Amino acid sequence: MRASTGVIAGVGATSFVIVAALVQAAPTQTAGAALSLSVPAKYKALIEEAGNTCPEVTPNLLAALLNQESGFGEKATSPVGAQGIAQFMPSTWETHGIDANKDGKRDVWDPEDAIPSAAQYLCTVAADVKDVPGDRQSNMLAAYNAGSGAVQKYGGIPPYKETQNYVRSIRALAATPSSGGRSATSSQAATAIRAAEKMIGTPYSWGGGNANGPSTGICCSPKGRTGANVTGFDCSGLTLYAYAKAGITLPRTAAQQYAASKPLKPGEIRPGDLVFYGKSPTSIHHVGIYIGGGWMIDAPRPGAEVRYDPMDVMSDLYSVARPISTQSKET
């Protein structure tokens, strides 16, 4: 919940249309749905109850938001001052925090207060933007992140890269099937690595690549490069393809793939895990496949090819995470 910072980067109109289309296409869950995402046991009852506060909020959507905001960290803080499991800014908490557990105090660090407060605040901003065209859940999430005024001003998800990534990542995770609760196995990881290695030397194509292999991409990258005339992969297209060969269906973008993966501690990392780059879950811009020894396979940028790169090739390494296994048509 970063509307209070007032610092969100803008993106071009073409990118906005593409992202908006992806988000609008995401399935809308209905209130009363059961919690199927894997969450820490101590939060399950809280999320299931708070996740039915209003029609736009579901347990899965609330769980995905908490995962995106803090990774379920009760004591999480952000560089701009957001606090607790739901990452309330102090000014927002002052206005919208509630004493949900009735212990006589509103405590942003207490999940028994913060989780119901997040659900209620989602409902508040949903009401603020109820007359805005488009998907109501997506507009609600955009308002939670960027403020209701921005959603009203732009008639939907505003053209801010952070907010666009935020919405689509939460929607993708919230839509994860309940059968997809197991992390990728070592065998699946090895299959993904072999598939990616066979693509070494394939051209980079912005927006290129799918479960079937290289494809022509789209226009345009942040620096104006188009993949419309290049058959190949971008970073997340490569990882999507490689894991499809292992029977795992990944979302399309790097940020969505992070949301659909399990973050790992340093001692847990193994070949096949995904390496993510960015400043936060909502700003992840690159992904590669770890192969061991500090190296990965990735599709780095326009003008380059799929190749081996050291993990420190970029300065903003954010996380290494393991894909969550969901069945695809590939075997």
Rank of each mutant, 00 (worst) to 15 (best):
G104D: 04
I291Q: 09
L66A: 04
A260P: 01
A142R: 03
L317P: 12
I47H: 08
T176Y: 01
L46W: 02
A119Y: 12
P251V: 04
A13G: 02
G180I: 10
N67E: 07
H96K: 08
T14L: 15
S178C: 06
N67K: 06
E330Y: 15
A184V: 14
I193N: 04
P27W: 03
P266C: 04
L264P: 05
L122I: 11
R136N: 07
G181T: 15
T185K: 08
A33C: 03
K279E: 01
E49C: 01
R301Q: 09
Q83A: 05
G155H: 03
Q83R: 11
A100C: 02
A175T: 09
C220N: 10
S169N: 05
I269P: 10
I297V: 15
N229E: 13
E48Q: 13
M311Q: 13
S215E: 04
L37E: 13
K265S: 15
G12H: 08
R2C: 06
Y154V: 03
K245E: 15
Y144F: 15
S91P: 04
N139S: 13
Y308V: 14
D234E: 07
G104R: 00
R106E: 07
Q137N: 02
L238C: 02
I8Y: 13
G237V: 10
T326H: 03
E56R: 14
A64K: 09
A195V: 05
A118C: 05
S70C: 03
G272M: 12
D312N: 15
V230P: 07
